[in-house]
Simulated assay, not measured.
Amino acid sequence: MRKLTYLVATTLDGFIAAPDGGFGDFLFEGDHMAALIEQQPDTVPTQMREPLGITGPNKSFDTVLMGRSTYQVPGGLPSPYAHLRQYVVSSTLSDTPADVEVVSGDVLAKVRELKAEDGLDIWLCGGGKLAAALLPEIDRLVLKVHPVVLGRGIPLFDGEFPAARFALVETQAFSTGVVFSTFTKS
């Protein structure tokens, strides 16, 4: 069975974006970026893959799931991850390219359906409300913790949800101060 992985950048105080949805305070240069490209190349937007030398088949994921705000981030692309099956969860979005499917119904049922299929894993790209709704189905967390404190913004998990316990399985620290921590559901 495929696994759902919530792989996301976060601040020290648990925000995945600024209040306006921006990412300007996150670090986009340094040794952690080289590690991300090597370890998780599937998470690099399609238009950046070739310039970064990313070729070949997907390594970890063949499907990406994102909330409407993550999909419609300012300056975003209409098909940001064309190398993956793309799903956007929204009850209001309707105008997307043919390779982006909108999920407007029961997202938990859709994720369970996707997990039952053959293939690589599913990447939960964001956002916080969607992560909270899908917490029962999240098998793995990969947090790219940036040495930044925002004080407010879009939380890693936003909403009401039952407590869930995860076990730390790997930590990788970089000279930039970014730390990748991987957790699996206990």
Rank of each mutant, 00 (worst) to 15 (best):
F180I: 08
P162R: 15
V142S: 12
G126I: 04
I154V: 13
C125Q: 15
V178W: 06
F161N: 10
T171C: 11
L156N: 02
D121F: 03
L143D: 05
E170A: 15
A116C: 06
P162E: 15
I122H: 02
A164Q: 15
E117Y: 11
I122F: 00
D118V: 13
E113M: 08
G177K: 00
W123G: 00
E137V: 10
H146G: 06
A132W: 08
V142G: 07
L134Q: 01
V111Q: 00
E170S: 14
A167W: 12
L114A: 00
L156V: 00
A164E: 14
L114I: 02
L134R: 07
L120C: 01
H146A: 08
V111I: 08
P136D: 07
V148R: 05
E160N: 14
E117S: 12
A163P: 14
E137P: 05
D118T: 15
L120A: 08
V169R: 11
R112W: 09
E170Y: 13
P147W: 05
P155D: 07
R140S: 10
V111T: 06
F174D: 03
L141V: 05
G127E: 02
V145L: 11
A132P: 00
G126W: 06
E137Q: 13
L141P: 06
A167S: 13
L130Y: 07
D121L: 03
E137N: 05
G151R: 04
L150S: 02
E117I: 12
F161C: 10
V169I: 14
W123R: 05
H146E: 06
S175R: 15
F166L: 05
L143A: 08
R165C: 12
L135F: 09
E170T: 13
V178C: 03
D121T: 09
R152A: 15
L150V: 07
E117N: 09
H146Q: 10
V179C: 07
V111M: 06
P162H: 14
V148G: 01
L141S: 02
F157T: 01
K129S: 13
R140V: 11
A164L: 10
V179N: 01
A131L: 09
L168F: 09
R165L: 13
K115G: 00
E160A: 14
S175P: 11
G159M: 01
D139W: 04
G159W: 04
S175G: 14
V149R: 09
G159N: 02
P155S: 10
K110W: 11
F166R: 05
R112C: 05
P162S: 15
G151K: 03
K129W: 12
L156E: 04
G126A: 02
G153R: 04
L156Y: 04
A173G: 10
E170W: 11
K115V: 03
A173I: 09
K110V: 15
P136M: 06
A116K: 07
V145A: 07
V148T: 04
I154K: 12
G126L: 00
L130R: 04
V178I: 04
P162C: 12
I138A: 02
R152I: 08
V145C: 08
G128C: 06
V111A: 05
